[in-house]
Amino acid sequence: MIELVNFYLIPGLVLGAIYALAAAGLSLAYGVLRFANFAHGELMTWGGYAALVAVVALGISPWVALPIAIAATIPVALAADRAFYAPLRRAQPAVLLISSFGVALMIRAVVYLVWGPTPQGYARGFTPPLVFEGIRIQQRHLMILAGTAIAALLVHLLLSRSRAGRAMRAMADDPDLARVTGVPVAGVIRLTWCVAAALAAVAGVFLAVDTELTPLLGFNVLLAAFAAAILGGIGRPWGAALGGLILGVVEELSTYPLIGGAPLLEPAYKGGVAFAVLVLVLIFRPQGLFKGMG
């Protein structure tokens, strides 16, 4: 039982927290801008590498480098919006989706050009896991869980308490109504990109801390992030976060040797869990757990 917690549940929650951050940003951008941003994975990767630069240059830990990663990722999202998405705002969402696909490749190419294809890590010394009553948790895992909770709280405060957050939700609910009632649309869109990019950067750094940095870091979890966002109800950041947690835990538990010592699912197929969840949601509850946008 303790093995289930240590080797499946805790890693599942950690992975779920990372998915939650990624999916919340994706869902938020979807809600306001109404297209699936395929460059979200690359924003995560960008944040991860930006933190690497700070870690190497300043000799700080990746946790301290988080603000730098965020500050380096936001301009990328804003620039992509300004140069490519804004002129297409009136086009169909499909065209924006294709455009974001092109942006994803451009960011990926720059990452390859600057940092090369070899996997890298934020070199850190060995830290022993913390043990409470037989439950072992890596310090970095604890940090990821705590960091995710803080990020969730901040986003929640922004969306529920601030004027800007209310404007964002108004845009997501009914863009035309928001426009005629004087919501500053351009400002709300910029703010949305800032929050989405910040969440992506944090998710990217956390994922790189938990695994390693590669140019495909974020792209490899894009499908999971979409699955989590749709599971939670697309356009609903809180739903996306919950969807991410569920997906992370399910993915880790899928390889648990429940029956006769054989894993439920061959570990090689773990990457397929997100797809299976996506298909099940699309069949049985396409609007997601919390009713997403129609």
Partner: peptide, 17 residues
Amino acid sequence: AYLRLFLIGLALNLILL
């Protein structure tokens, strides 16, 4: 090869615009 990847992404966006 990476530069080519960048240019093809840029080309796609420029055509769309």
